[in-house]
Nucleic acid binder design. Structure first.
Lengths: 135, 135
DNA sequence: CCGGATCCGGGGCGATACTG
DNA sequence: CAGTATCGCCCCGGATCCGG
């Protein structure tokens, strides 16, 4: 633990100032990547580049438009590349960039947590609803 | 075309089945936690419990309603607790639960990435826009 | 057939005002 | 100070159409 407990309010102010400035820098980035599809798309793209409908198939549940928009955003942010294949019919291949690849570890940590604690969250929700129903 | 791809697909089908089933389990969890405010709220609550307006002040930019909704969701999912303080005027303290605390590491990884690569993303966006403007 | 753009309706989010 | 209710807008999501 940190000597945080020992700090008085003034010190806490000082400390939180930095936390705040960090968060000010954090917010715009999180706005871009903390979207539920971003994680799953990059996860799909990680092992190998894929085409549009291939991604769509793997993410059964995602909408045509949602996927298109997400891919556009990811491309704009430099996380994936978009390559038109000279095939007939036309094919478009999406690949993950090094920058996008660097996101893999954080995302994996998050996914691992999700798999580990997803049930706990479900139980918590159920318990909460039950209590609310009882109350 | 491409019976070759189909052969590949069959093998990949096997492999991706697991990835898919993982992702099927992932999706509902990510739906709950992969929200941009969740991360920042838990980050704020991590060092010490805080009251409503205290959180709001630290997240300058968040709306009253957004914060209220997010806190309700977090409480429902067992990530934070809500305690009414017997003070006058009434105060409510939000604290992080062990479950919520277990999210800290994944989130820290994500935040670290954001701080490291945020600029790269910004540059990428700018470059993309510039190219688009030129085209 | 594949990938993308457009249009429109509904839900979510933000701002304000009010209660305890 | 904390929370809810209401309204209005925007944006997301679904359907349809277009180009290759």
């Amino acid at each position: 633990m940190i000597s945080l407990d020992m700090a008085n309010d003034t010190d806490l102010e000082q400390l939180s100032e930095q936390a705040l400035s960090n968060m000010a820098r954090l917010r715009p980035v999180l706005d871009k990547i903390a979207d539920k599809w971003t994680i799953m798309i990059l996860t799909v793209l990680c092992p190998k580049p894929s085409r549009f409908n291939e991604i769509k198939r793997r993410l059964h549940g995602i909408t045509h438009k949602a996927l298109a928009d997400a891919l556009k955003r990811l491309e704009r942010n430099g996380l994936v590349t978009r390559t038109v294949l000279p095939t007939a019919p036309i094919g478009v291949e999406y690949a993950i960039t090094p920058l996008g690849h660097s996101l893999r570890q954080p995302f994996e940590a998050l996914c691992a947590w999700a798999l580990d604690h997803g049930d706990a969250m479900t139980e918590a929700s159920a318990a909460h609803d039950h209590a609310r129903k009882a109350g």
